[in-house]
């Protein structure tokens, strides 16, 4: 599949922050994204931050893809932010770099406009539930959408990461989730803030 989202050379350093609640698969999504980025031959680092709760509580995972050695492993200037909860949107959306992209679950987040960032709300959890019968696959639907919107990793590399990382019996479901994400992100997008 073509890298539809990257018409020019990738910037020297890209920082992606995924945020939501414990149990939504935020860390797994970041791991898959980072895994896919390894295929590009660039430097990759993924970190995670979560509370002591098994479910609920804030969860955040970050991926940095760079041409050079990555020193400080955490995101300082995210160009892509994903928010799967209101708390996450309120905490992190505004930290996105100007010109950056904020992707959120439109059924879980009441988005407020942000100057100079592109906001895209999509119904990840709703679609995972209705189209796949598994709300828990919302994180992978989101990944498919982020891939489609940004081209930060290749679509084939992302599918390979799903095949490599996930247990065999759920690979097929998650590949469908990726495709669903691609499809939903290709359609009409959410509200755009004034540039």
């Amino acid at each position: 599949m073509a890298e539809s989202g990257s018409p020019t050379r990738a910037p020297a350093r890209q920082e992606i922050r995924l945020s939501g609640s414990g149990g939504q698969g935020i860390i797994l999504a970041a791991t898959l994204l980072a895994d896919a980025a390894v295929a590009s031959g660039r430097e990759v680092i993924a970190t995670q931050s979560y509370g002591p709760e098994a479910r609920g509580g804030a969860s955040k995972a970050e991926v940095i893809v760079a041409d050079d050695e990555i020193d400080f492993p955490e995101v300082t200037a995210p160009t892509i932010t994903v928010c799967l909860s209101q708390e996450a949107f309120d905490a992190y959306a505004a930290q996105t770099e100007r010109g950056g992209l904020v992707v959120y679950d439109e059924r879980l987040v009441q988005a407020t406009p942000l100057a100079q960032r592109r906001l895209v709300g999509l119904p990840f959890t709703h679609m995972a539930e209705t189209e796949l019968g598994k709300a828990i696959a919302a994180n992978i639907v989101m990944l498919g959408a982020v891939q489609q919107l940004t081209g930060v990793v290749g679509a084939a590399a992302l599918a390979d990461a799903v095949r490599r990382r996930l247990p065999a019996k759920i690979v097929e479901l998650n590949l469908r989730a990726l495709k669903l994400g691609h499809a939903v992100a290709s359609g009409p997008t959410g509200p755009r803030a004034p540039a």
Binding site: T31, A34, V38, E43, V44, I45, A46, T47, I70, P73
Partner: peptide, 9 residues
């Protein structure tokens, strides 16, 4: 915790 939970290529 940072080094233990960090993933690198």
């Amino acid at each position: 915790a940072t080094i233990g939970h960090m993933r690198e290529a």
